[in-house]
Amino acid sequence: MTHRVFNFNAGPAALPIEVLKQAQAEFLNYQETGMSILETSHRSKAYEAVNREAEATLKELLGLGDNYRVLFLQGGASTQFAMIPMNFLPQGRTADYILTGAWSEKALKEAKLFGNTHIAATTGEDNYKRIPKIGEIQLSENPAYVHITSNNTIFGTQWQDFPSFGQAPLIADMSSDILNKPFDAEKFSLIYAGAQKNLGPSGVTVVIARKELLENNPKDIPTMMRYETHAKNDSLYNTPPAFSVYILNLVLQWLKGQGGLAAIEKRNVEKASLIYNAIDQSGGYYRGHAQKDSRSLMNITFRLPSEELEKTFASQAEKAGLIGLKGHRSVGGLRASIYNAMTVEGCRALEQFMLNFQQKNG
């Protein structure tokens, strides 16, 4: 290894260097099996141990007990957009969606294919610059579930505190901020997350759910789309994305070694503050998209005085080893994704680049 860049891509995202080194060391001969984990049967004791440890560690980090299960599925969060209403939206009931960005819109679009839906709140009229206030949320009568997206990669907003809605099950897409800080996971009936932003590599999707949700799912939907299929078989009904789960497990062990979620939150706040301070102290040269009370710790979105300057910024940053700073193609601008694996050093490098760029081009 001669050179590593600072990877600010929104996903697939940076992985901890310690995890990559461990995977490299074990790549040819995992646990003295004489073969790579890539070659190991998912029915073997070696892989089943990885699968069990990943579930147990994730529940430990979230403070969850035996009334929750963790599933390792495929198809990304986008498949969950459909699986959730297929399993939990019966005929005659309504599913409520709170819209805070493009991904919550996509989730709603899929749910509409399977049953009645209701938009309980949206900040689309504000170009998704903020998270709705609790008083703005108007639920339907006795919703089957309420769906939120905890963090919005495109617009750079994040729920600072999660709502509760009494008996209505709360479901969250946490693909881009899961495990970024402590939170009360028991508020949620189901959490799902594509791994490729904050948990590991692409290929595996994590579903964390109350056990009762994973039983007696409708029998008139395909076997692979029923959560109980995967729960009864410990995520081994079909061949799982074994290597992705293996790396995810290493990331979870790394998180434990960092001191858990309280310690990682402290580091994430320090990282984000470096970049937000560069924006706030620029005299308007850098303009953050998100309102301050809705700012994300994971995705920092901002604009410059012109699109031409934004292109120059991204190009020069890449030459300086700061990769992946272009905003999402749908909104433009710039975006720094600073997931758990991004280092403080990387954020300091970006802060200094921003200061220097403004001095030369402001």
Rank of each mutant, 00 (worst) to 15 (best):
L99K: 03
A102K: 07
T100Q: 06
S140R: 11
P132E: 15
F114I: 01
I98D: 04
L108Y: 09
E136L: 12
T100K: 06
I148F: 09
I148V: 10
G115I: 02
W103H: 15
T123Y: 01
N116H: 13
N142D: 09
K109V: 04
S150P: 02
I148L: 13
G101F: 09
G101H: 06
T149S: 15
Q138H: 14
G115W: 03
A144L: 01
K109I: 02
N127Q: 06
A120Y: 11
Y145H: 02
H118K: 08
N142A: 12
I148Y: 10
Y97Q: 13
D126P: 00
N142T: 09
A102T: 10
E110G: 02
T122H: 05
A102P: 00
A111Y: 03
S104P: 03
R130M: 05
F114G: 05
T100L: 09
L113K: 15
Y145I: 01
Y145K: 01
G101S: 07
Q138W: 00
K106R: 15
K106A: 15
K129F: 00
A102S: 09
Y97H: 15
Y97P: 11
E110H: 02
N116I: 01
P143T: 06
E141Q: 15
F114H: 12
W103M: 15
T122E: 07
L99V: 05
Y97V: 14
L113S: 12
I98H: 07
V146F: 10
K133W: 01
A144P: 01
K106C: 12
F114K: 02
E125Y: 11
K112P: 00
K129E: 03
R130N: 09
L108K: 14
N116V: 00
A144H: 03
Y128H: 14
Y97S: 13
T122Y: 04
G115K: 06
Y145D: 02
I148S: 08
I98S: 06
D126H: 08
K133T: 01
K109Q: 14
F114R: 05
N142M: 00
I148K: 10
S150W: 11
Y128W: 13
N127E: 09
E141M: 07
A111V: 03
